[in-house]
Design a protein around this nucleic acid. Structure first.
Length: 118
RNA sequence: CGAGUCGGCUGGGCGGCCGCGUCGGCGCCUUCGGGUGUCGCCGAGGAACGUCCGGACUCCGCAGAGCAGGGUGGUUGCUAACGGCAACCCGGGGCGACCCGCGGGACAGUGCCACAGAAAGCAGACCGCCGGUGCCACGUGUGCCGGUAAGGGUGAAACGGUGAGGUAAGAGCUCACCAGCAUCCCGGGCGACCGGGGUGGCUCGGUAAACCCCACCCGGAGCAAGGCCAAGCAAGACCGCCGGCCACGCGGCCGGCGGUCGGCGCAGGCGUUUGAGGGCUGCUCGCCCGAGCCUGCGGGUGGGCCGCUAGAGCCUGUCGGCAACGGCAGGCCGAGAGGGAUGGCCGCCACCGAGGCGCAAGCCGAGGAACAGGAUCCGGCGUACAGGCCGGCUCGUCCG
RNA sequence: GCGCCGCUAGCUCAACUGGCAGAGCAGCGGACUCUUAAUCCGCGGGUUGUAGGUUCAAGUCCUACGCGGCGCA
């Protein structure tokens, strides 16, 4: 699980991460990563979006808890000024924990690789 | 043993590692708002669900009268209340246990009953039947007057049913039995109602989940209720359109224009015993309050704390009651977050189990394990649900 | 939290106060044409979202449920 300080909660945070960041979809998840958070940031933070298309309340909670658990291990590999938003697609409802982890890994490596290196 | 019916309980357990949330203790830091580390307690359901009802609580309103509107509908009880529950009554279904029923009123009134049929509600008569009588092309003809409603036919439904007497033909016209209505009396029951007897005229369709009538109930809003504190007049939030740039996978960024909201400010107008405006949360009468109200322009905030969980509470025992339920005694404290905490990995036990091994008892065993997540709190109802356990009763068969 | 609407043929919609469920497009067949389109003729297609009830009779009235959508705070 993630500590409260590592979570995105405000809608303005979500808006900033989604609008300012790069987006990559892999399998069951879509990832938005934004690495330009202001200087007072002390740790990378992550938030989750699980819409009603995924399932009922129990299913959505389970997906979100698994995503939090999966993200916890990967968050240390991100810079401290990173904001990450993980959005679950409807197929995430039937995915296993390992599938979610694999999709998240693939998405993270893709989103961190510059499309056009300077 | 088989078939059935009713009711109750349960909704995996133990453990390891890594984590999460509220609260409390301690340490450290602090801009005194809090942050952080560590330890400890506690941490989703029988439906937490749907939101169909009822309450608690909070704010607003609360001279009065009338009208409108909504709801309920056998009786008696239970309850804080209910459209809920219990017992009983009536009607229907079942051999039975038992189940189902929005189950007041159709002589207060209005409406409707398609098609068919002569006629669909208040009487009437199409084909008929019978009596009298007229005409002629005298026949199985036709017309008129009268009496009938047994028979035919239509329909979901046709003005009591069956039998006998009676008659020109018939008819509750008369009689017997039955059904039903009205009314009276007796007995039982708190009551719905039940049982019995007498009298009357012979007899009156359905629909109120059509309007309606009757009886009873209902003020409005909802924890985003509501209260306190802080900041604050600044260039805000959201929506739409247009243009440019970037991406080219829905999109993003910038600029402009327009609109809505906005507890504050400015301006103008109308008012302050000659009464603006407002209230009696729909309307009218009537009554009351009353010094502010309306319009335009500019245009801020959306943070914190309380409410917030000890309650019509749960468990056990006992007493009253057929029961729902209630009284008494003892014990217990069981989430309180504020975009939302229960997760991940694994082991063992228990449950189901495709299949395999074995002569058999049995053994091994892939895999599976439902419906579903608190958001102010309770009481119900409704709906979803893998399985498992217990009990009452009924019918059938066999044995004693 | 409060309260509102819809569900009818493959698609878009009708059916007035209960009385034999219909139209347009689409589909199929035929005609016209050298062929296609257009046009004309004909045809099929429905548990009226589900279940139950009221009624002689239900798309319509009542109750419960399911699905989809909307509004206000």
């Amino acid at each position: 699980m993630l500590a409260a300080a590592q979570r995105l909660r405000r809608s303005t945070d979500f808006a900033a991460a989604i609008r300012g960041g790069r987006r990559v979809g892999r399998g069951t998840v879509v990832v938005h990563l934004f690495v330009h958070e202001p200087a007072q940031a002390t740790t990378a933070r992550a938030g989750f979006v699980v819409s009603k298309a995924v399932g009922n309340a129990v299913t959505r909670n389970r997906v979100r808890r698994r995503l939090r658990e999966v993200t916890r291990d990967r968050l240390a590999g991100l810079p401290a000024e990173a904001m990450l938003v993980v959005r679950a697609l409807p197929q995430a409802a039937s995915a296993t924990y390992d599938q979610l982890g694999a999709d998240l890994d693939a998405a993270l490596t893709a989103v961190r690789r510059p499309r056009r290196p300077r």
